[in-house]
Design a protein around this nucleic acid. Structure first.
Length: 432
RNA sequence: GGAGAGGUGGCCGAGUGGUUGAAGGCGCACGCUUGGAAAGCGUGUGUGCCAGCAAUGGUACCGCAGGUUCGAAUCCUGUUCUCUCCA
């Protein structure tokens, strides 16, 4: 959520920004309600002040009937004002929550994701001296993915992942955890990216996979609800990405500045309905209702936030490069970065089976937009309180990255070359 | 799933209707004291919102949400979380 004081002072900018991001919000109406709300709030405060004054005169017993009568009148008036205030406050908050975060100045303005800007291409599309297959075809040959039986048991877009593919997944996980907890390596990644960020290790986390409505909403990741799985009888949702449960971990907390940045890498099975997918997306395990993911999250000061974002991107590039995969970096435009985002960068990895770059990574920078409702604050060295800035980014979405490894590393006889960086985690095997 | 106990400030802990934003202690900050330190002494030390350049003032907050009352940390209802015992 944005700061209402910021909106008051920058209403035109905020309206313009909402339009650029494709959100229909009425800032004028919001400001009108804000004024009404504040008026009622002041009135209620005044009435309470009077009530408190009278009350303090009444203590010690022997209250005069007159005073009691006065107090009763106040009580009634206050009740009326409070009811009115509750109503206005509710619709005001509803409107305020709809206002998207301000996009940073260097975010390309665009109406659809087609206006995202490719800023960097690393490596070249893998070439083969045979016609490359899709991961689904190779997995079928190797009995790595069984969607038919999964459909019988759980429905469409679920899978049984089996055999060497399971070992590959665990190898990737180990590789990521080793990378993100190695401060020497993190320092090198930072300095090679020209970033002056502390090389502080990420804390690995296995988070809860369910999240309360209030927390999900505070993270501003509850929408679109159509894409979420709700557990009706419990006021709980299945989380759609570890950042949902990592970012909300420090809700209602005040963190000493010396402890920042807090960096986490969460491993979580994530759930999404992914309604409306079609074509290539339906093949194999590209787009499933359930997938495992390693996600980075950081809480930092406001001044450190932008570099944390770039650091996350640098880490993503390091991870992809370590696997020898061709990828490109995409600066997402205003329409695509998402409501709570100030900036958003994607990594698209080359998939020979689709002969296309497809999204495997996202890095989101939310400034203080999430922290405002989470009430996660930092106590500055000066003693001042300030909202933290949040960053989240994919380390690896395991399903998608295994697709990339299979398709880019395939041989004519349906084997898959193991990236050098993963070989130590697969007993030194060169091929799966 | 059942029974019981309990959630008070950074921490411990008092408080069962009336200056209680909340005793006391610990911690922390500043000052005094000291050659220096400890001890000791003194002062201060929560958060949100509104108004104000500020000092400050008003208001709300004792897990959360309602209710009773002129007045609620204290009484009532619901709910949530933690702990103990049982299944």
């Amino acid at each position: 959520m944005l700061d209402i004081r910021f909106i008051r002072e920058n209403s035109a900018l905020v309206q313009e920004n909402a339009k650029n991001k494709g959100y229909d919000v009425n800032i004028d109406e919001l400001l009108r309600q804000d004024e009404t709300r504040r008026g009622l709030q002041s009135r209620a405060d005044e009435l309470r002040e009077k009530r408190n004054t009278i009350s303090s005169q009444l203590q010690g017993g022997r209250p005069s009937d007159e005073l009691i009568e006065q107090a009763k009148l106040l009580k009634d008036e206050l009740a009326t004002i409070e009811a009115e205030l509750r109503g206005v406050d509710e619709s005001f908050t509803l409107l305020l929550k709809k206002v998207p975060n301000m996009a940073d100045g260097d975010v390309p303005i665009g109406a659809t994701e087609d206006e995202n800007v490719v800023s960097k291409v690393v490596g070249e599309p893998t070439s083969f001296d045979f016609t490359p297959r899709s991961h689904a075809e190779i997995a079928a040959e190797r009995s790595w993915i069984d969607k038919e039986r999964a459909a019988k048991v759980a429905g469409s877009r679920f899978g049984y992942i089996k055999g060497d593919l399971v070992k590959l997944q665990f190898a990737i996980i180990q590789f990521v955890l080793d990378t993100l907890t190695d401060e020497t390596l993190l320092g090198r990644i930072a300095s090679e990216a020209g970033l002056d960020v502390p090389p502080k290790a990420f804390v690995p986390v296995l988070p809860p996979l369910m999240i309360r409505t209030a927390m999900y909403d505070a993270m501003d990741r509850l929408e679109p609800q159509d894409d979420r799985y709700k557990l009706e009888s419990d006021d709980l949702w299945l989380q759609g990405s570890a950042e949902h449960v990592l970012g909300s971990m420090h809700a209602d907390e005040i963190i000493d500045q010396a402890q920042l940045p807090l960096r986490y890498v969460g491993y979580a099975t994530s759930f999404r309905r992914e309604a409306g997918a079609y074509g290539k997306d339906m093949e194999g395990i590209f787009r499933m209702h359930q997938f495992d993911k390693l996600e980075m999250e950081s809480l930092s000061t406001s001044e450190a936030g932008p570099d944390e974002h770039l650091f996350f991107v640098a880490i993503q590039e390091f991870l992809l490069s370590s696997l020898g995969l061709p990828y490109r970096v995409v600066q997402k435009c205003t329409a695509d970065i998402g409501k709570p985002n100030a900036r958003g960068i994607d990594m698209d990895t080359w998939l020979p089976g689709q002969a296309n770059y497809r999204e495997t990574h996202t890095a989101d920078y939310m400034t203080d937009y999430q922290a405002r409702r989470l009430r996660t604050r930092v106590r500055r060295e000066s003693g001042e309180l300030e909202l933290v800035h949040t960053n989240d980014a994919t380390a690896f979405a395991l399903g998608r990255i295994m697709i990339a490894i299979i398709e880019n590393g395939q041989t004519q006889d349906n084997r898959v070359a193991v990236p050098t960086a993963l070989q130590p985690y697969l007993a030194g095997r060169l091929f799966l």
